Computed example of a mutant assay.
Amino acid sequence: MSIMLSRNGSRIFNLININYVPSRNSRARPWVRKPLGSPTAKSKLFRVPQKPNLPMDETEEIRRLHNIYFTQMKSLRVYFYEQSLKQAESGESAQLKLKQEDEEHARLMEENRLENEKTAKKREERWTVEAEKTRERVISSLVKKEQQEELYKSKLGEFIEMQKSIPIISKENIEKAIEEALVNPVDFNYAIDLEGYVYRGKETSIDKISPENRERLCN
């Protein structure tokens, strides 16, 4: 018998469990266990156990294994429960239930077949509509491309005709063109005053042009 004090100072009596276990030398030695009503040891009174910090991948793996375990156990419980119900039933009731299950299965299979046929029919109709739209889109693209080519050819022909109408200096009329250029020289020089009047030509004099005949950029 051992007398110990609790945290609040009250005296309690605890019985020390002494078990005799054999040792290596075949001698009995006492093994003293902590009494059930004794308080927490002072060395462990304010100790907070540290939670193990596991890596994220290991945590996910443990969670996955737990989910698999719980799912399998639930499946086993449901299976055993159904088996127990089947074993509890016997005679005509069991045969009637089995027949009802077969009829329900056949009905569901037929419903599934009809639904598959309906889905296949809708799929064929959708494919037909999509093929028709694709054909119309291709035809429209080809027509548009042909129109663009025709427009390009038309503009190209107009450009060629316009270029043909522009006088071109050839070997036959090069001497005549040189003579005309010498007789009629073109002066591209011009000057602009502060009022916006333009005086073309390098040798042009302001006094020789009347105010009425002067060219102005903006009014």
Rank of each mutant, 00 (worst) to 15 (best):
A94R: 05
L142P: 01
K122C: 01
A106K: 11
S154P: 01
A88S: 09
E158K: 13
K97A: 07
T128Q: 15
Y152G: 01
Q147G: 02
I166E: 05
R113K: 13
E89R: 01
Y152P: 00
S84G: 13
I139C: 00
S84P: 01
I139S: 06
K145W: 09
M109K: 12
E104F: 05
K155H: 09
E82I: 11
E82T: 05
E103N: 11
K99G: 04
A94I: 05
K97P: 01
N116M: 12
S165I: 03
K164D: 07
K133L: 08
Q87T: 09
T134Y: 04
G91F: 02
K133A: 10
Q83W: 11
R126T: 14
E130V: 05
Q95F: 02
E115M: 07
E103S: 05
E158F: 11
E101T: 04
D102N: 08
K121S: 06
A94D: 01
E115A: 15
S140D: 09
I160G: 02
V138M: 01
E117I: 10
I160Q: 15
Q83N: 10
E146H: 07
G91A: 02
S93V: 06
E115H: 10
V129L: 14
L85H: 05
Q163L: 09
G91H: 02
R113Y: 10
H105I: 02
W127I: 15
Q100A: 13
H105Y: 10
H105D: 09
I166H: 00
K153P: 02
K155C: 03
R137G: 00
Q83A: 10
G91M: 03
K164Q: 08
M162L: 12
E132I: 07
K155M: 13
K153I: 00
W127H: 12
E124W: 01
K86W: 14
E111N: 06
A88D: 08
Y152M: 08
S165D: 08
L108Q: 09
L151G: 00
D102R: 10
L151W: 04
K122E: 08
L98C: 03
Q87E: 13
K99N: 10
L85I: 09
V143N: 11
N116P: 01
